[in-house]
Design a protein around this nucleic acid. Sequence first.
RNA 1: GCCUCCUUAGCUCAGUCGGUUAGAGCGACGGACUGUUAAUCCGCAGGUCCCAGGUUCAAGUCCUGGAGGGGGCGCCA
Length: 477
Amino acid sequence: MAKRTRIKDIFSAETEKRYTVMGWVRTFRNNQFIALNDGSCLSNLQAVVDFENWDTNLLKRITTGAALRIEGNLITSQGKGQTVELVADKIEILGDCDPEIYPLQPKKHSLEFLREIAHLRFRTNTFSAIFRVRHALAFAIHKFFNDRNFVYIHSPIVTGSDAEGAGEMFQVTTLDLNQIPRNEDGNINFKKDFFGKATNLTVSGQLEAELGALALCDVYTFGPTFRAENSNTSRHLAEFWMIEPEVAFNDLNDNMDLAEDMLKYLISYVLEYCAEDIAFLEQRLSEEEKVKPQADRSEMALRDKLKFCIENDFERLTYTEAIDILKNSTPNKKGKFQYPIEKWGADLQSEHERYLVEKHFKKPVILTNYPKEIKAFYMRMDDDDKTVRAMDVLFPGIGEIIGGSQREERYDKLVKRMEEMHIPTEEMSWFLDTRRYGTVPHAGFGLGFERLVLFVTGMTNIRDVIPFPRFPGNAEF
RNA sequence: GCCUCCUUAGCUCAGUCGGUUAGAGCGACGGACUGUUAAUCCGCAGGUCCCAGGUUCAAGUCCUGGAGGGGGCGCCA
């Protein structure tokens, strides 16, 4: 096949030269103008056909969705709306597309409809933009950490540990479910299973990352994560991607600095390298906002919101300070909260987080030092023995985008917490070894990748920022 | 898991109090036009009213159950 020039490169290519492009037809206007897209960028290339000199049967096959190879001379556009256009002198139909049944037509489609045809939605402006931005964010994450000498750790997807304590797990087995081998006591005999023990899909790479950090100092994981929770929201997936940095000798303040630096870097990266896509997503969002009631509308355009996050420090405060603010807040006093804030120790609901982020501070917030009762066993106990060195980064519209902590590095205190919370210490002896042999203070966090993509693209449903979402009752494609 | 709303043409949606042959816009198709920008103009076709029961002289409309989807809450990233 002839050498293909990507449409992205065509726009800066030398004119009065021949090029070959390949892609899919978005529209064929006026029997004369083919809008061709190859996904390399948002913009379509306009290919011009002198229809009087072309076979009518060929022109009829140039329909929305058809795959074409076009050769021609690139010229400065004679019309408005684009800088260059390709004067086609050779057109090959690589793949026909019957417009009677092709679901994507040159018109606006709802996100709900496109979600049902997720295998084709890559071909729309919105989703091609989202997935280019998603790629850029993934790449920027590796670049951010690589530039800071972090080591990328591949934590296992299949785990033999059932004590990670981050939610319900998917079981992994090769046992015949119709003929499950059993022990004499009637329990399942996992010795007959593939790994010789019960195994699950990982719910977090954190514990493995800690092992790496206590030798390599600065490490991160970035991989798929699985939660078998029956969560039905626009912010949860059963299969999602998580970034988990873990750094030896870092305390909670270092951890907050790292999280804030990283988020600002990633947002800046996308503003710089995905300018066209972000501009398009901003426009899409503002059109969507127009039909909403005034009270539900976002106060800022997408790029303004992103820039605001970069240019302002995140608000850092303790759980205790947050409770005071919430207790004295107007909605709490007027009984507007579904869960009124009465006393210290209550878990914060999303309505409380949203009030702090969207109404009170109007910027990203980092909440720290939560009561130990509502946080995981591995978080470092504060001196008051009541709170732990946890941190949650809260973003407008998204809620919790990062959850992390300084880890409990003191062996005795960690074991005590595990026993209090009924975590089996024998099974976790490999984890406890790090506290037996040269333990050091360290800290880390988990960033939900799709929640980041949600925020940056201005989308509102997490199922629209991953190609093929998995959620309760659905594993299509 | 809980609460709530929705399901009518390929898509987005009207459809009044239960009453004759179920409508619109967009898209598709046919034609005209030919420097268009989701082209425009004219014309035409297109329906398992989500499924299964029930009430009724009569059900897209009312009732019961089921399926699918949206939004909110919980769990969290």
